[in-house]
């Protein structure tokens, strides 16, 4: 039997779809499956020197993935156990329990202070935007604030997509730096 080689650079292109499909049929949650697959790749990288070459790379990765899936089910089951003993002190009748914390004003409620803060934030964003070069400000505004599609902007300004992303990157870096100074 030939020895199998291990080459992490090929993993994504060779196995990501396979591993993802394998996982999603077992956990039926796309996000979770995605996380599990990336954890598998990471674990595989960490354990690369333990790879003996007896099985193919794919078999080896699947065996790691199986462990990850088992761990995932252990974790959500213990969460469920905890959730079941949680007390719903407010569900029985309207005022039963009468917890003090729930009688005070909702801290996430919109207040006058929030409105002032928000308009100050708008002003800060506007001021920072003004400091950017015209082109960057224009693209950033269209993309981030007006939520235009990449394609629309590209057609409008006659630039390529990669061009746009470079401009966006520069604008975002500048905006983050500027807001860091004036707002945070």
């Amino acid at each position: 039997m030939p020895d199998h080689k291990i080459d992490p650079n090929q993993w994504i292109s060779l196995y990501s779809d396979y591993l993802f499909n394998y996982t999603v049929s077992r956990v039926s949650d796309r996000d979770m499956a995605q996380d599990l697959v990336s954890e598998t790749f990471l674990a595989g990288l960490g354990a690369m020197k333990n790879f003996k070459g007896e099985a193919s790379e794919r078999t080896w990765l699947i065996s790691i993935l199986k462990r990850k899936i088992i761990d995932y089910y252990r974790k959500i089951n213990s969460n469920k156990g905890r959730a079941e003993v949680r007390m719903h002190y407010n569900s029985a009748t309207e005022s039963e329990g009468d917890w003090l914390e729930e009688r005070v004003a909702d801290p996430f409620d919109k207040t006058a202070e929030d409105h002032i803060e928000n308009s100050e934030l708008g002003l800060a964003i506007y001021n920072c935007l003004e400091k950017l070069p015209t082109k960057q400000a224009q693209v950033f505004e269209m993309k981030t604030i007006l939520n235009y599609d990449t394609e629309t902007i590209c057609n409008e300004l006659n630039i390529t997509a990669s061009n746009l992303w470079v401009i966006i990157h520069r604008a975002r870096t500048a905006m983050a730096g500027c807001l860091e100074k004036n707002w945070f």
């Binding site: 928000n118 934030l121 506007y126 505004e141 981030t144 905006m175």
Partner: peptide, 22 residues
């Protein structure tokens, strides 16, 4: 660090639909 700041910027701008008239 960059990813953190980037997400923060997105959050700030999302917090309020910014009108650009001064």
């Amino acid at each position: 660090k960059y990813a953190k700041n980037n997400a923060k910027l997105t959050r700030l701008i999302k917090r309020k639909p910014v009108t650009l008239e001064p």
